[in-house]
Design a protein around this nucleic acid. Structure first.
Lengths: 143, 143
DNA sequence: TTTTATTCTATTAGATAAATAGATTTAATC
DNA sequence: GATTAAATCTATTTATCTAATAGAATAAAA
């Protein structure tokens, strides 16, 4: 399951990407929170994390607010989810951003759990890293 | 990430499936715990949950222990993971075993997060529900 | 009736999730 | 320069979940 943090973060950045097109300058946390029904204080924390990773850009003071930190087609859903919820991998021995040998594991090469979860991880990463914010906003995702 | 519970559960049931072939009768928790390096008391809880769902069978008293509750080719990895870790779905509005409308969601049909996560969920479910314990034991999983 | 094993009841320490409160800093505008 | 609008920083809180442990009860075989 996605945490609320990741879900709120995705909602917020998708909204930002949509508004960006209208060229109305930065969007305030208050507006984002109201429109997406997200607790304002919690959203602050989430946006700040995304800004620190360069995915968002902020402007202080009056007339300030948040905007995308880079073009929507350079931001993938995978980046956002990893940033807010940690590794996509089901077992740490499969994670690229946080590799860690499993304690109980005797041999990674023959571990059946690892083999199955590698398939899951690869397909998940392919989807999430292959979908950009731009795709989401354009409604390019079909099912 | 898989919880330790799910990981221990998978380790244990894979071990049981392998031992089953040798026709030596039920395996004791103590043996399982020792062989797979799992805290014994924690493993008790896990095995009991699996037994209550019919995936395992237990025999009380001396000479007792655990064995598979049905043939290894009738037990999928998906069943085990759902049983121990809950729904595979990233958002509750996609779960079959625990559907629940998202609080903030205005329209499921047009929700971009849902569309992306549906792809992830479908591919994950296809892999995990399409792999049986028997496949795992036979080393049929290739990558 | 002793031994071996699962099962049940209860509890706990620690981590994480989700949120809230209040003070501070920065910058535009009046 | 004062006011206002905004993000930022520090801190705290509550609830829930994870992982594990302890001990008594029950069941069955030898």
């Amino acid at each position: 399951m996605l945490s609320k943090k990741a879900k709120y973060g995705l909602q917020a950045i998708i909204y930002l990407a949509k508004e960006e097109k209208k060229n109305k300058g930065p969007i305030q946390i208050a507006e984002l929170a109201k429109h997406e029904k997200i607790p304002k204080k919690f959203l602050e924390i989430i946006l700040l994390e995304m800004r620190k990773q360069g995915i968002l850009h902020s402007k202080l003071g009056a007339g300030g607010g948040y905007s995308l930190g880079k073009p929507a087609d350079k931001i993938t859903i995978g980046q956002i989810v990893r940033l807010l919820d940690g590794p996509l991998a089901q077992v740490s021995c499969l994670s690229k951003i946080a590799y860690h040998k499993c304690d109980e594991c005797k041999d990674e090469k023959t571990c059946e759990i690892r083999k199955i979860m590698k398939k899951v991880h690869d397909s998940t990463a392919r989807i999430l890293d292959g979908t950009t914010l731009s795709d989401a906003v354009k409604g390019k995702i079909n099912f």
